[in-house]
Design a protein around this nucleic acid. Structure first.
Lengths: 194, 194
DNA sequence: TTCATTTAATAAACTACTTCATTTTTTACC
DNA sequence: GGTAAAAAATGAAGTAGTTTATTAAATGAA
């Protein structure tokens, strides 16, 4: 039943037969993590690719300065993993931590590799998913260059309309690449402007 | 013959039979652009995905401020396109312009779609290519956050060891997300330090 | 309810980077 | 080889964002 959101999602990209769906579901695990638990830990080899059914995660890394840098938030209908670690099976650069209780459809590396040979159409599914992720990432690079922190914050609120209430402000600041103090200043500016 | 570099490249990801290689090559065009010519123009629908045999391109867009922002440089053995435009067949956000005479192996959208059905293994090839591109893009987001312009410049010189001589400095500044004046300052600092 | 802990707000001093204006160097072409 | 145009260097003044320190508000556990 929790699987159904995932199957629904796959239909946007590829059509699977009933048997293929069954094979697919037999190779995934639906798993629930509690708030604050880690799905991936920096330094470990990331062994899972996770489709989020419910909840919210943050992907972050510890900088040389000992500071936490938030790379992304993931919510319902998104994926989370350390893809660099997952595809190369090398130690992860990132942590993925739940900031709410989070239920995911989880693919292990081994199972996904098997699935690719059993259901070649899945290559297409994941190609398309990663293509979109790449485009989104590239857009973010650009935004960081050509927009001010204030403008980026406005876009953030649009693209994650609800997350504002789900995620503490200092993490949002980190995601935006600014200090929590400066985000606080921006917010008070926005209030004074209207 | 120019194709051979491309076939060599594909071997890193998938194995193709001789017939498959023949089909693949029958659906691509080897094309040479002159310095300053555009492969993709902002606003047009990007109809090609290009593997670079020789030469160098820059991907950039015109900001609202009328300023040119360089998104990436592409050299031998890399790909260039506006992927967001290509996959969705929507107007391109970016220009891709040759900054040297450039020879590419070119896939049109229609041909690539046909190839995916004729040689499903290609889904795998492009999945893997895009996975790597995504990881690289994500790393760049991070670098832009946690490093100073000076540090980013050092990394730039390492990752593109030769491009430094091939590309004018003001474009490098734009790629790094800083002004040409500030890059000039950084360079003079680096000279004085040693 | 109370106390401890985490999160957010505010403000002053500081720094990385920009802007603008000028000069020097390099490139290219008749 | 000379001259125009493009690119790079230099410097002074300005701004977006940081750092550090302090206070206030919200959250959560006993």
């Amino acid at each position: 039943m929790e699987n159904s959101a995932f199957l629904q999602y796959t239909k946007k990209y590829i059509k699977l037969t009933t048997e293929e769906e069954a094979i697919l579901l037999s190779k995934v695990v639906v798993r629930t993590y509690l708030k604050d638990q880690y799905i991936v830990q920096q330094g470990d080899i990331c062994n899972s690719s996770n489709f989020i059914i419910s909840g919210c995660t943050k992907t972050f890394y510890m900088g040389a300065d000992g500071q936490e840098h938030v790379v992304m938030f993931s919510i319902e209908d998104w994926w989370t993993s350390d893809l660099g670690s997952f595809i190369a099976q090398k130690p992860a650069d990132f942590n993925v931590q739940c900031i709410e209780n989070t239920t995911v459809v989880q693919f292990t590396y081994e199972n996904l590799e098997k699935l690719y040979t059993q259901i070649p159409k899945l290559e297409r599914l994941f190609r398309k998913i990663v293509e979109r992720a790449f485009v989104a990432s590239q857009k973010r690079v650009i935004r960081n260059f050509s927009l001010t922190a204030k403008e980026r914050y406005a876009i953030f609120k649009k693209t994650y309309p609800k997350i504002d209430q789900r995620v503490p402000q200092y993490m949002i600041a980190s995601y935006l690449g600014i200090t929590k103090e400066f985000l606080s200043k921006i917010k008070s500016q926005l209030i004074n402007e209207q």
